[in-house]
Nucleic acid binder design. Structure first.
Lengths: 397, 397
DNA sequence: TTACAGTTAGTTAACCTTACTTACCAATCA
DNA sequence: TGATTGGTAAGTAAGGTTAACTAACTGTAA
């Protein structure tokens, strides 16, 4: 009779190993092509320990090794160079937007492999989550990947999400209330799923691949229908006590206006939303009698302002003035190294950025870099990065 | 000949031990009077491991044990109850204020043992740091303590401090620029010294002993000459990229006023400072011709407003309106569980608090507790807590 | 060309620390 | 006396360390 050993509960004794293993793997990700010896020296681990861990990582496929061409000029054995295997697994990033659901597959280094999309409004309320899962599966197959090669799926959702339970608390544009998106997708896709607010996901993307790459304290402000703000503090997303951190749409930059005129009851829409949001810009143009007939968009107003139309310019300036003071307020509280502006309106903003920064300089003594996002697919990348940030694995960052 | 064993470099193998030891000690701090067995069960450690750690902690004096009176009603051996030794060491908290330097000795549980103070202006610029050290030494002796019993010294400084290097970058009220306070005090007192901004220290005090006790995401706003804000995120002080987080004196709550009238160049004084700071309240009363002759203080204006003076009431209301919108802005960004108001003016504020919270409710959908500090010596306690938070020791929280 | 010293990379062997499991003793209740 | 609970002792496993070793290469001098 064969006695099968019951593996003892993996308690803390494994912790040290995992920590060291993670440390080694992260070092390899950062410094490609170094030897076991280099790693031991840099991480202050003994050579046998590193060798042992490296062997395991090789076995598991996370890394590759290659004999070096040349030894050191001082003599000695040729080292084996060790490289991170960026294609050891693949990540799916999903960005649920108001108009499009975008889905992408990327490798572990965040290199986009393939992308697809479908119309949100056409499918919402009609097996929506199942549709997402189908698109993910199709995309996986089309790229010749097994579902076992998927490391995880990250989703950005336009609404308030309880990240810990994986439930979308409220997403008006999808008519979702308390939808257990994470668990539903997990059972359909049989791989780990993590979800977060779209703004947070965009901030992560910018932190991973964008201007905020090296800024452990950075902020991403998204300008669109409303205004939102993703906060990265000490290299981690900060979500607040009730997942409402960065809801700067509720900010007030004009006491008198807020005291007297503003009597809005909430529907996820605050004072600042109604002063710098895209629709508010369009609406204010409409209110001027002489332009009443036209169908305005924020983009059009921006373009007219750049072209010299005084009314458009006044409108934009007023709106950007509110934005500038909002930035002052955010920066004075958070003191980030960098603020990245993103979202639909941001592309129209380059022309006005100097004006904004000069207002900041007038009111703030601290130096902060303000830039406009340049990253393509920042939300998709950020959604993917969610997996590396949140999923408990050797790759966790 | 006695051979003294050179202890091998404490590498990672000790890490796990330290972690477990810390875990056990924290458990004992939280749950006084439990047995070794209880601890093992609660922390999911084996009984021998806990016994081993407890023995070491007893040896080192951090804990005490006492044989229990009675065993469990189900029978069994009487347990040894284990208690945290709150007097295993003592902490010194120092609050350098504009008028007074306060110094206190407290035990490890934050119970104040003794307190002293001296005039800031009388000693500043004249062996100031040496004077502080002298007062600390005198206080220690007067309480029959050896300097070896001092676990550490925490200092709250009214200015911008580089917490990591221990240098006070700029403290206008002390005329300090780039003063290496930490290293100087350390060499005078020969025990670990940690320094931080006065507002951060107050926030820590409130987090340790005040209303924010159980709020891992809380904010303390201090109202005085200026307005400041200490931020605790995930149970840790957040200081920002350049130690300027929470400098909400620079916030702008009135776009038009800031655009048109406000042309202040900085001297550590921003828009909000000049609208809710104590001196600004006094100054605005002065500007009204009919009251020009009086010598105003913010406290006096508050009292007159409560007593029904219309002019005072208008002044206070305007100022508190700015404060309310500042609170809205802070909360919308940080989404804390609780905001604690402190500082000189806060005591006069109870009467107006309902008005503030009603403004918040009007503009914010999230629920946040707003309270006024009730803790005596909150800054001294916070300064002491700095040691437990920052100093690398078994007690580190 | 060959021998060999010097250097570096990586492995093997012996040992230390720490925590776990199992087994046991101690003390108490009913 | 049996059941139950608190605590200790002995043995084992896991993971890390040092020291010594093998492997492989560079450069120089006979």
């Amino acid at each position: 009779m064969k006695i099968i050993a019951i593996r003892s509960v993996p308690t803390d004794s494994n912790l040290l190993k995992l920590l060291n293993k993670r440390k080694v793997l992260h070092y390899i990700q950062r410094k490609d092509g170094h030897s076991r010896s280099d790693i031991a020296k840099a991480l202050k681990l003994s050579k046998p320990t590193v060798s042992n861990i490296v062997d395991e990582l090789l076995e598991e496929g996370w890394i590759r090794e290659k004999e070096s061409e040349r030894a050191s000029s001082a003599g000695g054995r040729k080292p084996f160079q060790i490289f991170f295997n960026e294609n050891a697994a693949y990540i799916v990033g999903i960005d649920i937007g108001g108009t499009l659901v975008e889905i992408a597959i990327m490798n572990l280094a965040g290199k986009l492999i393939s992308k697809t999309a479908f119309s949100t409004q056409k499918h919402v309320g009609n097996n929506f989550i199942q549709t997402i899962a189908n698109y993910v599966n199709t995309l996986t197959e089309q790229n010749g990947l097994e579902s076992s090669q998927l490391f995880g799926v990250g989703v950005g959702v336009p609404g308030i999400t309880d990240v810990d339970s994986g439930i979308v608390i409220d997403a008006p544009s999808l008519s979702w209330k308390n939808v257990p998106l994470q668990s539903q997708l997990e059972s359909l896709l049989s791989c780990p799923v993590y979800i977060d607010n779209d703004v947070n996901v965009a901030a992560l993307g910018e932190y991973w691949k964008g201007a905020g790459r090296k800024n452990n304290n950075m902020i991403m402000i998204t300008l669109g229908t409303g205004i939102g703000c993703g906060i990265i503090i000490n290299g981690q997303l900060y979500r607040g006590a009730s997942y409402a951190a960065g809801e700067i749409g509720y900010m007030v930059t004009d006491k008198d206006a807020a005291d007297k005129k503003y009597e809005q009851t909430f529907s996820g829409y605050g004072f600042l939303d109604s002063h710098v949001g895209g629709p508010s810009i369009a609406k204010r143009m409409l209110n001027h009698a002489e332009k009443r007939e036209e169908k305005w968009t924020a983009k059009k107003v921006f373009q007219m302002a750049i072209d010299g139309d005084q009314l458009a310019l006044d409108t934009i300036n007023d709106s950007l003035s509110h934005l500038s003071f909002a930035l002052i307020n955010v920066i004075s509280i958070i003191n980030p190294e960098r603020v990245v502006l993103g979202g639909g309106i941001s592309k129209s903003m380059h022309h006005f950025l100097p004006h904004i920064t000069s207002t900041l300089e007038k009111h703030l003594p601290v130096q902060t870099d303000i830039t406009i996002t340049t990253v393509e697919d920042v939300s998709l990348l950020g959604a993917g990065y969610l997996i590396l940030k949140e999923h408990e694995s050797i790759l966790k960052v």
